[in-house]
Structures are given as structure tokens and as C-alpha cells.
Design a protein around this nucleic acid. Structure first.
Lengths: 197, 197
DNA sequence: GTATGTGGTAATCGACTGATTACTTGACGC
DNA sequence: GCGTCAAGTAATCAGTCGATTACCACATAC
């Protein structure tokens, strides 16, 4: 509840803004989000957001790059942690679900970027990020495996973004689909969703 | 090139607008699209779009419902056409890819709706449309099959929306992923993409 | 103390957008 | 001919948003 105008260094403030922006962009999409909403989510004024990032475009691009690297890092750690080649797929899958649970905005921002491929600034960054993730998966999976893995990831993103996760109790098939998509991690994720309500 | 103000009946005009809106919303997203862009794409003035649909919200909702039913109809036809239970999955998959090829805006509008689940008007419609498609798949597939199927559909949507289809020649892995996701239908789809350039 | 640089905001501007209003044009019944 | 209704538009309004400008507060150096 501090309302003191606590001054932080510009780089630290950038981090705060990027984190808030990931949530806002993830929820509202690029066009639907405003620099003012990002600013309020970060606890500062709108002009300062623009000054630190130059443009709404550039802010979103930086969010995209940041989130893409976050996914890559999580995958790398999961890959490194699994010495057995047979367990690597389960580990990487678990890493993705964990990322979903702890930082929903990350995945949703990525998703928002993917479906803006037509944009001359955002499109190239989104495509490159997507392919970097696929390439990383291919270092430990066959093409068919990697395709199915990333497909399931897109489904998970869609389930979260559409708000179907919060309707898991409505309709038998909703719960069935969620259970099928998340496997034994479903309970975990549902708890995570309920937590930040 | 006709610039005569050809008058059509209001219901027919609504169809034109809905078709144009599916393309515009699919390309730019809900917030990114404007009623004026839809109007120009349909060859009429912006106020008339608003008058026929009341609200941008309602126009998008109607597009969503329309496109959802289009997918359902395509699936139903594919299911009906396949007497053998073993071939039904391939047939439904082919129906989806064909839908992608002939009417890209349909799938992209759906996708745009899915990731706007937070919106109080759009969210419920999108979720209901999504689950109706899943339910239909479940009449001919096991849960695991249906989940994988719809996951691959989400991947295909993402690949198209991100613009990766147009970059199939850049990077070996891009082509590999596309080939893996579309199977033997890849050539067909790429031709379809190149056609409406 | 005063100059200087850094973190930050209030006020505002111009462009855009969804919606409204008032108007025009033409077909059809009588 | 004339009233009426449907199809459609030009003009415009009110709100929003990204960006700019001009300013403030406070530290630290000298």
C-alpha cells in the first residue's frame, strides 16, 4: 500500500514494466492493451512507459523476445536435467506446464504475438521466436514428436486464453478435455489458476 | 471494377459483410480491426455496417457463431461420408485442412475469438463454440484422439496466423514442421496460400 | 549553494474510431 | 403523380490512445 513515489533505477523499472506488460498484453492482446493500462499495472505513469520503450510496438517486441527466451531457458533446464533420453519428453512437458502455472502472462503474450504475423514489426519476431522453440525441441525429439508437443502447447495456450480452464466444472467434456491435455498435472494447474484470482 | 452503388437486399448485404468481417477480424484481431475496414472490404460505408449489426461486438459475435457452425458442418459432412470407423479421423482431418485452404479467414477469426476469453461478450461465445467442436469430435474419437486432433488444429491455426506458411522456404526446419503438421496435404495448402496473394 | 543529471509526472495534442444524426436515392403500391 | 419504405451515405460527435512537451523532485558533485 505504499503510495510514496519510490524511485528506482531505470533498468529496474524496465523489468517491472516488462513483467506488467506481459500480463496486460497476454490478457487483452496487442491492439486491445494500452500503454496506460500497462503503466497502471506497473504503478507508474503512462508517459514514462513510452519514454523507456519509445513505442508501444517496441515494448511489445521486447516482451515477446523476453518471453520467448523464458520458454527456451525452461526447456534447456529440463533437457539438461534429464540424462535419460526416454524421460526428456515428460520433463520438457512438465516444464511447460509449470511455466503455464507460475507465469500465465508469458505464454499468453507469446500466443498474442503468434497471431499477429501480418504486422511488419511484430510478425518477424514472433515467427523467429516460434521457430527457435521448435528448433530447441528438435534437439531432443523427432519431427513427429516435436510437432505433437508444440501442438499440445498451442492447445494449452488456447484453453487458458479462452478461459475454459475456469469452466472446468461446467460440462463433463470440459473436464475430460482438460484432464487429457494436462494429464496428471491438471490438479496442480487448476490450483494455480484459482490462486491468483 | 463496378463503382455503381448497386443496391442489394439487407440480408444479402449482411452475408457480404460477415464474409468480409471474417477476413478482416482474422487478420487484425478484434481490437485491431475497425468497422471502417470491414465496410471497405465489403464495399459499403462504415455507418451501414454499424446499422446492420448494431455494434462491433455483435458483428464479431455473429462472425464467431457463423464460423463455428461452418467448422461443425464441414466435420459433420466428413463424418457422414465415412462409413468405416477407421477412416473417419483422416477424413475429418482432411476436411479441416480443406477449410483452411479455401477460407483462411474462418479459422483465423475463430482463433482470434478463442484468445479473447476474458471479454464478457465474446468469451462465452468462443468457449461454447470451442466445446461444441470438441463434442462433435468426441462422437467419433476417443478423448485422447480428439485432444490430439484439436491440438493439431490449434497448431495449424497458429502456423497460418503467424505467417510461417509463407516462409516455408526459409530454414529447413520450417519446411519440416509444415510437412509434419499438414502431411501429404502440404503442397495443396501452399498452392492455396499462393493463389490469393 | 548551485549546477547537473536522473527518475518521474501533469497537461495536452493530434489522430483514430465507434456510433449517431440527418440526409439522399430509388423502387413500388395506389 | 405521390406517399412510403428500404438501401445507403456524408457529416459529425464524443471518447480513447499513443506520443510529445514542459515541468517537478531529488540526489550528488563541485
Amino acid at each position: 500500500m505504499e503510495q510514496k513515489p519510490d524511485r528506482i533505477s531505470a533498468p529496474a523499472r524496465r523489468e517491472q514494466i516488462l513483467e506488467a506488460a506481459a500480463r496486460v498484453f497476454g490478457e487483452l492482446g496487442y491492439a486491445g492493451a494500452t500503454t496506460d493500462k500497462v503503466a497502471r499495472a506497473a504503478g507508474i505513469s503512462q508517459p514514462y512507459v513510452v519514454r523507456l520503450f519509445g513505442t508501444k510496438d517496441q515494448l511489445f517486441v521486447e516482451v515477446l523476445e523476453r518471453t520467448g527466451e523464458r520458454v527456451l531457458r525452461a526447456f534447456d533446464e529440463a533437457i539438461e536435467a534429464s540424462d535419460d533420453a526416454a524421460t526428456v519428453q515428460a520433463r520438457v512437458g512438465a516444464a511447460y506446464v509449470e511455466l503455464v502455472q507460475t507465469d500465465r502472462g508469458v505464454l499468453l503474450s507469446l500466443m498474442q504475438g503468434f497471431i499477429l504475423g501480418h504486422d511488419p514489426h511484430i510478425g518477424p519476431v514472433a515467427r523467429r521466436g516460434f521457430m527457435r522453440i521448435y528448433d530447441r525441441l528438435r534437439t531432443v525429439m523427432e519431427p513427429e514428436e516435436a510437432m505433437r508437443f508444440i501442438a499440445q502447447g498451442m492447445l494449452i495456450n488456447t484453453l487458458i486464453a479462452s478461459g475454459l480452464m475456469a469452466e472446468f466444472q461446467q460440462g463433463q467434456n470440459v473436464h475430460e478435455l482438460l484432464a487429457c491435455a494436462f494429464g496428471d498435472k491438471l490438479g496442480l494447474v487448476l490450483d494455480g489458476m484459482a490462486a491468483d484470482r
